[in-house]
Design a protein around this nucleic acid. Structure first.
Length: 207
DNA sequence: CGTTTGATGCTCT
DNA sequence: GAGCATCAAACGG
């Protein structure tokens, strides 16, 4: 197959165009449902996302301005913002537009598509396939994404890549408030694929 | 089954 | 020093 890249062997498709990400995260987020996150030989279809609206959103890491940690959010769209939290977990976001606006989409859950054996190896606690990517930190652990992927260009091969394999987003996605935040709970900026078993479950207590 | 609690360390005040 | 865009083990019914 002439011109075939290694990524084509993992999942057929093409990188998500950067221009489609150069909009506010609240518009991009539901469009990312169904897209495929690829890292090496592992891939997962995105089934749950949350939008963080930059400087105007009290829940956003960018709310209090640019710092060393959130610098990638203030850069151009189409890059990956990876942060470390709770002393042990990595979480990944797609930086959206406009450039400098610091809006981003948190990737909260995915359906395992490729490299499932590697995912189980990376996540010893997982017993079933639905335990592999059903949370933002689980997704990163399963795909082997950590701080070294911070700033990766999702449109370019070589690191973490966002791929469109032709699967459309759901016509009527599920919508709810965002999970795990203290400020900004009034905004319904979480979207998910209804009925998908990989969508994260509310971990009981939510005051 | 559903709910509670401990882990663990970086980031910003 | 407080808080954190979380997870999984432990606990109780």
């Amino acid at each position: 197959m002439p011109g075939g890249s290694e990524q084509d062997l993992v999942v057929p498709g093409h990188p998500v165009p950067r221009r489609s990400l150069d909009r506010d995260a609240r518009l991009v987020a539901p469009e990312l449902l169904g897209k495929v996150l690829v890292h090496g030989g592992r891939a997962a279809r995105i089934v749950e996302v949350e939008a963080y609206a930059g400087g105007e959103d009290p829940a956003s890491h960018a709310f209090r301005g640019r710092t060393a940690r959130n610098a990638v959010m203030f850069g151009p769209p189409g890059h990956l913002y990876v942060y470390f939290t709770y002393g042990m977990h990595w979480c990944a976001n797609v930086v959206c537009g406009p450039d400098g606006g610091a809006s981003a989409v948190l990737l909260r859950a995915g359906a395992p598509l490729a490299g499932v054996d590697e995912m189980f190896g990376a996540r010893p606690a997982a017993r079933r396939e639905r335990d592999l990517c059903s949370g933002p930190a689980k997704l990163c652990q399963a795909l082997g994404i950590d701080g070294s992927a911070n700033g990766d260009d999702l449109v370019m091969a070589g690191g973490v890549v966002l791929v469109d394999d032709g699967t459309p987003p759901p016509h009527h996605p599920g919508v709810s408030a965002r999970i795990g935040i203290s400020a900004g709970q009034e905004h319904p900026w979480r979207w998910f694929v209804p009925g998908d078993p990989n969508v994260s479950r509310p971990s009981a207590r939510r005051p």
